[in-house]
């Protein structure tokens, strides 16, 4: 098994970028606990215990001259020379990292040499820190978290064009994320306002997308809202990952809601969501099963609107 289970050659691009962008100095411990050559192994043993570390560098005039590991201490206890100076017993066969090396280097060093820590040197060959596998894992986990957050945000606003005149916008919606509820519909509305649609049409799309978005937040395990902008219509599609609507006919009735007290106290669960969507749609369809519900709302532009938008030429 690898010490740090990250492949430095063919991991996802984002991970590769990360381990090349991060330098050893970004992950290492700057607080250096070291001893001089005159220190005894006993002193090192105490330092290890007090600071919960397993290796102590031996330093002379800011230069690294050796390292004492936990193994060296055990040896010393076994053979009875624990009170002797470190100079005689420290490991001098040193493998070091430089502070400006990318983290990918450090990862491959850990795999190659099986040490638990490496001393880190500056360009001037002075010791500036220590790096352990834990330092690297912790920092990577933190960075990966951050990258995933960014990715999620990007997915929400990915725009693709299907090659024709249709532009498509897609937003992922999380379960019970009341904090961001309305974000997708607001973006969709912004887009429509720029396109010069009539306020009446924008209102219809805003109602449909908002209700469908809230439904995903309130009732589903999470899902996705997609808006397709055609030359003579807007299609809003809401898809979720379940649990599905038990009785679709009942859900379509005004006033029927399965929302709990807490959700109602926030002003949701009036039982008007789906009926509102249907009433503003020119075309409405709903399909539901335990793997998810898909609602499609199509809102057509009026003839005048199409002329106004220039998607249709007037006949003389």
């Amino acid at each position: 098994m690898q010490t740090i289970p990250i492949n430095t050659i063919n991991s996802p691009t984002i991970i590769l970028e990360l381990i090349y962008r991060l330098k050893v100095k970004d992950v290492m411990t700057h607080k250096l606990i070291s001893v001089t050559r005159e220190a005894t192994l006993r002193e090192v043993q105490h330092l290890m215990k007090e600071n919960s570390i397993t290796g102590v560098p031996v330093v002379s005039d800011r230069r690294l001259i050796g390292i004492v590991s936990m193994d060296d201490i055990i040896q010393a206890l076994d053979f009875g020379y624990i009170e002797e100076a470190v100079e005689k017993h420290m490991s001098q066969n040193l493998i070091v990292l430089e502070e400006d090396m990318p983290v990918s280097f450090a990862i491959s060093y850990f795999d190659r040499y099986r040490y638990h820590r490496f001393p880190v040197l500056s360009k001037e060959k002075e010791i500036v820190g220590m790096v352990t596998t834990r330092d690297i894992s912790t920092r990577l986990l933190w960075e990966i978290n951050h990258e995933v957050e960014n990715l999620e945000r990007m997915i929400q606003t990915t725009k693709v064009t299907d090659g024709l005149t249709r532009e498509v916008q897609s937003f992922s919606i999380l379960k019970h994320d009341f904090e961001n509820a309305g974000f997708a519909s607001t973006e969709i509305k912004k887009k429509l306002k720029q396109s010069g649609l009539f306020p009446k049409t924008i209102r219809k799309v805003a109602i449909a997308s908002y209700e469908l978005e809230i439904n995903i937040v309130v009732h589903s395990n999470g899902g996705r809202i997609t808006a397709e902008y055609g030359p003579d219509e807007v299609i809003i599609t809401a898809e979720d990952n379940g649990p599905g609507i038990e009785d679709v006919d009942q859900a379509m009735q005004t006033g029927f809601s399965t929302a709990n007290e807490w959700i109602r106290s926030l002003g949701f669960g009036a039982g008007m969501g789906l009926p509102n969507v249907k009433s503003v749609s020119d075309d409405f369809s709903i399909k539901s099963g335990e793997n998810g519900t898909t609602v499609v709302s199509r809102i057509l532009f009026s003839e005048q609107e199409k002329v106004h938008l220039g998607t249709k030429t007037t006949k003389e």
Binding site: I207, G267, F268, A270, M272
Partner: peptide, 8 residues
């Protein structure tokens, strides 16, 4: 106070 009612 019912947001869907307001919305509609």
């Amino acid at each position: 106070d019912l947001l869907s009612d307001v919305m509609g």
